[in-house]
């Protein structure tokens, strides 16, 4: 785990790398999210001040894209595809099973122990593997609720 200081130092380097160019806001936010795993409010404020744009502007961009998160995410990120192909192959039942397994209620996406975050995505472009699940960047195809739960159990062990 990086220390707060290292993370902040990285944000400064990111800003320098993009020469404090406001038109590079999105790549700057992407790189910042890599560091913190989400976008803390005070860091967004810092970025807006450094780029000389209003915080409302930065906040607008950060809330527009579902890729950006303003709340901390879990250690492991599970993305269940809910695109058309996966949806007709019952991706919903996978989502339901995972929610139950992880004890997440409707609006919650991250477990209390900060171990897992469950997200849905609109299409991964791997419709041939539908229904698909991505766990920490690795794609798993032709999933079923029980296979998905097995993945979680594997990590927990």
């Amino acid at each position: 785990m990086k220390s707060n200081y290292e993370k902040f130092k990285s944000v400064c380097s990111i800003l320098e790398k993009y020469s404090f160019d406001k038109s590079k806001l999105i790549p700057i936010l992407q790189a910042t999210q890599e560091e913190y795993k989400y976008l803390p409010q005070e860091v967004l404020t810092f970025i807006s001040s450094a780029l000389n744009i209003s915080p409302a502007n930065v906040y607008g961009v950060a809330t527009f894209y579902s890729h950006f998160s303003l709340i901390p995410k879990g250690k492991h990120i599970i993305r269940v595809c809910d695109g058309t192909a996966c949806h007709v192959k019952k991706s919903e039942s996978i989502i339901e099973a995972l929610r139950k397994k992880l004890n997440l209620n409707n609006s919650q996406t991250t477990t209390k122990d900060m171990l897992f975050t469950l997200e849905t995505v609109s299409c991964l472009g791997t419709c041939g593997l539908s229904p698909a699940v991505v766990l920490d960047g690795k794609v798993y195809g032709q999933m079923t609720p029980s296979k998905a739960i097995a993945l979680i159990d594997q990590i927990k062990e």
């Binding site: 409010q41 807006s48 209003s54 915080p55 409302a56 502007n57 906040y59 607008g60 809330t63 527009f64």
Partner: peptide, 25 residues
């Protein structure tokens, strides 16, 4: 607010049916 006053106190937040206009955060 942005173009004439250069303040930008208000902005669009979220997208689609969840869009609202409000101050930062």
């Amino acid at each position: 607010c942005d173009e004439i006053q250069s303040i930008g106190a208000l902005g669009f937040v979220n997208r689609g049916s969840k869009s609202v206009v409000c101050p930062s955060f």
